[in-house]
């Protein structure tokens, strides 16, 4: 299979593809998600110290979970890439630990069929800004962040201050959670 070389797509496209997997079990959309994300998950796993076999296995398993849990994806709380990252990370830990990782309770859907489109859009913009901010971090800080996520730092070595500007994206997610609670209690 050729190395993935397609041009970067707007994040909104990936969210829509996950929603068509959810709504119509769309294999075409799934194939596109697979072509983009599976090789990245595999790369992330290999960078984190997994063997090629384990990385391939985790990437395939992560894509199975994407299909089976598509109904839990909420684009106002996480971008497509963020949601897929959490699935990949969990598969990685499960594989290293040989046991299921403790995860918080899944949040249920409210009576509203869809989250506010504007919320999802705002979160996507924040995610893009975050990516840019990471690129612009001073080299030393960026290295620390990278090493933390690729498992080269122990939890005791994690820095309290990373220099990451997370205030706005956190407030966005917090707002989406508050809305969800409100619709649930109505």
């Amino acid at each position: 299979m050729a190395r993935t070389t397609e041009a970067p797509r707007p994040e909104a496209d990936w969210s829509r593809k996950i929603l068509s997997v959810r709504d119509t079990r769309d294999e075409g959309a799934f194939a596109e998600l697979f072509a983009h994300f599976a090789p990245r998950i595999k790369g992330f796993l290999i960078k984190s110290g997994a063997s090629a076999t384990m990385a391939e296995e985790c990437a395939q398993e992560a894509m199975v979970t994407l299909w089976n849990k598509a109904h839990l994806f909420d684009p106002s709380r996480a971008s497509a890439a963020t949601w897929i990252f959490t699935i990949a990370r969990n598969k990685k830990i499960d594989a290293f630990r040989r046991a299921a990782r403790p995860e918080p309770e899944d949040l249920p859907w409210g009576p509203e069929p869809e989250p506010e489109a504007a919320d999802a859009m705002a979160l996507q913009q924040e995610t893009q800004k975050l990516a840019k901010a990471i690129e612009e971090l001073p080299q030393k800080q960026r290295d620390i962040v990278r090493r933390a996520y690729f498992g080269d730092l122990s939890h005791a070595e994690l820095a309290e201050e990373t220099g990451l500007p997370l205030g706005t994206i956190k407030s966005r997610i917090r707002l989406a959670l508050t809305r969800l609670r409100q619709t649930l209690s109505e």
């Binding site: 990245r40 998950i41 595999k42 890439a81 959490t86």
Partner: peptide, 19 residues
């Protein structure tokens, strides 16, 4: 979740490995 968004940015930047 905001720290998971950071992880996603790093994963997007990872070198791809062919499946």
């Amino acid at each position: 979740s905001s720290y998971e968004a950071v992880g996603a940015c790093l994963m997007e930047d990872c070198e791809c490995f062919d499946m």
